Simulated assay, not measured.
Amino acid sequence: MEQKLKLWFTEHQTEDYGITFRVNHVYESEQTEFQRLEMVETDEFGTMLLLDGMVMTTDRDEFVYHEMVAHVPLFTHPNPKSVLVVGGGDGGVIREVLKHPSVEKAVLVEIDGKVIEYSKKYLPNIAGGLDDARVEVIVGDGFMHIAEAVNEYDVIMVDSTEPVGPAVNLFTKGFYSGISKALKEDGIFVAQSDNPWFTPELIRDVQRDVKEIFPITKLYIANVPTYPSGLWTFTIGSKKHDPLAVAPERFHEIETKYYTPELHTAAFALPKFVKDLTI
């Protein structure tokens, strides 16, 4: 009988709390130019991408995050043709973006090329869309790409890590102002904004900063088991279109595992302690 590898990995989500996985195999473990990158195999969640000791995505639950980042803004916008994804080198958000036939071009700007390389190799079900003809992949600084873009995108999605390391600048008011400039006159953006249990002040700060720039600013939630606390938030900023006023005929059928038109609305129904962070 084959004995399992007795190697356990713990992501310390706070100083006093962590989530632990048994690791069966380590495919890659490398200090890239920007961060510590590991690609490992687990029984419980399959292949797992770790950056600086934090779980970024897994085979088993990746669809929740990627679907909710992509489909909420894309169904809110009446005709999204040009889409930018900042970060997200694993390709999961791009995969979901490409399910929308109106999208003519999707640009991915990922600062760490190793994330793209290893995701294509070990997470093909997530990264497969990166080779699509509609996709332009840029290995570079998303902050600078935004700063140089003017009236270029219908939808911008910020698929970043937590605000540490290379992602620090992606949680600043200046970055949100740059996003507004890079968007067209009826553009929409969405960013992951962490969890309300361990980082409530981060959510409060993001909501405050985005509200000063976008007339329609809302918070929505999803359940991602491998992220801290499992309860994850997303902040959407829109110049014109309200995600809670999408006409029923705008929803078209796509293949999903988590997102539905009904959930599109329900995700904005917040527990009171989370809603209080938006005031």
Results as ranks from 00 to 15, higher is better:
1 M>D: 02
2 E>H: 11
3 Q>I: 13
5 L>G: 00
9 F>P: 00
11 E>L: 04
25 H>A: 08
28 E>K: 15
32 T>R: 13
44 E>M: 11
51 L>G: 00
53 G>W: 06
60 R>P: 00
66 H>S: 06
68 M>G: 03
69 V>I: 15
72 V>D: 01
74 L>F: 12
76 T>W: 04
79 N>C: 11
80 P>C: 11
84 L>M: 12
88 G>S: 07
89 G>T: 06
91 G>H: 11
93 V>M: 04
96 E>N: 11
99 K>L: 12
104 E>N: 11
104 E>M: 12
104 E>F: 11
107 V>Q: 08
114 K>R: 15
119 S>T: 09
121 K>N: 04
123 L>E: 12
128 G>H: 15
146 I>D: 09
148 E>G: 02
157 M>V: 14
159 D>C: 04
171 F>C: 05
172 T>W: 02
172 T>G: 04
177 S>G: 05
177 S>R: 14
185 E>R: 13
189 F>H: 03
199 T>W: 13
203 I>T: 02
217 T>I: 02
231 L>N: 00
237 G>Q: 02
238 S>N: 01
242 D>T: 03
243 P>S: 02
250 R>G: 00
252 H>F: 15
254 I>Q: 05
256 T>N: 05
259 Y>R: 08
268 F>Y: 09
276 D>T: 09
277 L>Y: 02
277 L>H: 02
